[in-house]
C-alpha cells in the first residue's frame, strides 16, 4: 500500500514536471504571467506552512524574507549588471543567512512573541531601505537587466523559476517531510522534551527549519518581484503578504502539503470574484479563517483527510498495524 502510494507520488511528480516544462510553449504571455503570480503566492504560503505546520515556528513577519530576496536580486543585478535569473539561488542563500543571523535573538521568544518579533525586524528593514537613496528609498528600484532582453524569453525563464518553486513547494516538501530531517522537525514540533530525549538537537533542528523555510520565501520573493520588474519597500515588506499567506494556509489546512494548494485556489477565486470591491475579499478571508478555527483548526484538507482517510502527500506511513482506528 505504502509502496504504491510513493510510486504514485513519483509518477505525479514526473508528470507535473513534464507539464510545467511544456506550459510556456502552449500558452499566451498574459496567462503565463498570471500563473507566475499564482505560483509565487503559493510558494510564499507553502513556506509559511512549512515553518508553522512542520517546524512549529509561527512567524508574522515572513514579508521580511520576501523583501530581502527581492532587493538582493535587484541590487546585485543592477549594480553588477548580472543576469538576475542566475542570482535567484543566491537569494535563497541570502535570505537564509539573514534568518540564521537573527535566529539567536528571535528564538529567545516563543509563540506569538516570536511571531511578532520577526514582524518588528521586517519593519526595521523596511524603514532602513526607505531611507537609503542607493536602495531607491521609498520609490523603489526597477530591474535594469531585463530591459535589453527578449520579452518572451524573459517571460519564459520567469515562468520556469516560478514553476520550479511551485514544484519544490509540493514535491520537495513531501520528500523533505518524510526524510530524517523532516521527521526530526515533526518530533520537535510535537514535543520538544520527547524529541530531546531521543537524541534530537532541538535548537539546531528548529534553526535548520527556520533557515530553509525563510530562504525559500526569499527565493520566491525574488521571482515574484522579477516578474513585475520593480520593487518598492512599501510593497515588498507589506504585512498584507503575511495576511495572504496565513489565510491560504489556515483555510486550506496547516501542516499538510495539499492544504495550501486548495487555499491558493480559494484565494485567487475570491480575489477574482470580488475584484473592484476594495477590501471586501480580505474581510471574507479573515472571516473564513475565524470560521475554520472555530470549526476545526485543521482546515479544509485536514478535515477531509480525517473524514475520508485519504492522505496523498502526508508524512505518515502505514505501519502494518491498523492505524485507522479513531481515537
Amino acid at each position: 500500500m505504502t509502496d504504491l502510494r510513493s510510486k504514485l507520488v513519483t509518477g505525479a511528480a514526473l508528470l507535473s514536471a513534464v507539464l510545467l516544462i511544456a506550459m510556456p510553449h502552449a500558452m499566451a504571455e498574459g496567462n503565463l504571467r498570471y500563473i507566475v503570480e499564482i505560483f509565487c503566492v503559493f510558494a510564499f504560503a507553502q513556506s509559511w506552512n512549512f515553518l508553522a505546520g512542520y517546524v512549529g515556528l509561527m512567524s508574522f513577519g515572513q514579508q521580511l524574507f520576501i523583501g530581502l530576496g527581492a532587493y538582493f536580486v535587484f541590487v546585485l543585478s543592477n549594480r553588477l549588471g548580472l543576469n538576475p535569473f542566475w542570482i535567484v539561488p543566491l537569494a535563497f542563500v541570502f535570505a537564509g543567512t539573514f534568518a540564521a543571523l537573527i535566529s539567536p535573538l528571535v528564538f529567545r521568544l516563543r509563540d506569538a512573541y516570536f511571531a511578532i518579533s520577526i514582524w518588528v525586524i521586517a519593519e526595521i528593514v523596511r524603514l532602513f531601505i526607505a531611507q537609503r537613496d542607493f536602495l531607491g528609498s521609498v520609490s523603489g528600484l526597477p530591474l535594469m537587466a531585463t530591459r535589453g532582453m527578449d520579452r518572451s524569453l524573459v517571460a519564459m525563464w520567469t515562468f520556469y523559476l516560478a514553476a520550479l518553486l511551485a514544484f519544490l513547494a509540493v514535491f520537495g516538501l513531501y520528500y523533505l517531510s518524510r526524510s530524517r530531517l523532516g521527521l526530526a522537525l515533526a518530533a520537535v514540533r510535537d514535543n520538544e522534551g520527547t524529541a530531546a530525549s531521543i537524541g534530537i538537537n532541538v535548537w539546531w533542528t528548529r534553526f535548520v527549519g527556520f533557515v530553509v523555510g525563510s530562504g525559500f520565501t526569499g527565493a520566491a520573493g525574488a521571482v515574484y518581484y522579477m516578474s513585475v520588474f520593480q520593487v518598492q519597500p512599501g510593497g515588498a515588506f507589506d504585512p498584507n503578504w503575511m495576511v495572504i499567506m496565513l489565510f491560504i494556509v489556515i483555510i486550506g489546512g496547516i501542516g499538510t502539503v495539499e492544504g495550501p494548494i486548495i487555499g491558493t485556489a480559494i484565494y485567487f477565486l475570491l480575489r477574482a470574484f470580488f475584484s473592484g470591491t476594495g477590501n471586501l475579499y480580505l474581510m471574507l478571508l479573515g472571516a473564513a479563517a475565524i470560521a475554520v478555527m472555530m470549526v476545526s483548526a485543521k482546515g479544509i484538507w485536514g478535515v477531509f483527510r480525517d473524514f475520508s482517510g485519504i492522505d496523498i502527500l502526508g508524512a505518515r506511513r502505514a505501519s502494518g498495524f491498523d492505524t485507522h482506528t479513531k481515537s
Binding site: 509561527m58 511571531a115 489556515i250 477590501n279 479563517a289 475565524i290 478555527m293 483548526a297
Partner: peptide, 20 residues
Amino acid sequence: IPQILLTFGLAIVLRNGMVE
C-alpha cells in the same frame, strides 16, 4: 496557535471593516 490565528483573523476583519 488556534487562538493566535483566530484573533489575527478578527484583526483583519476589523481593520478592513474600518477601512470600508
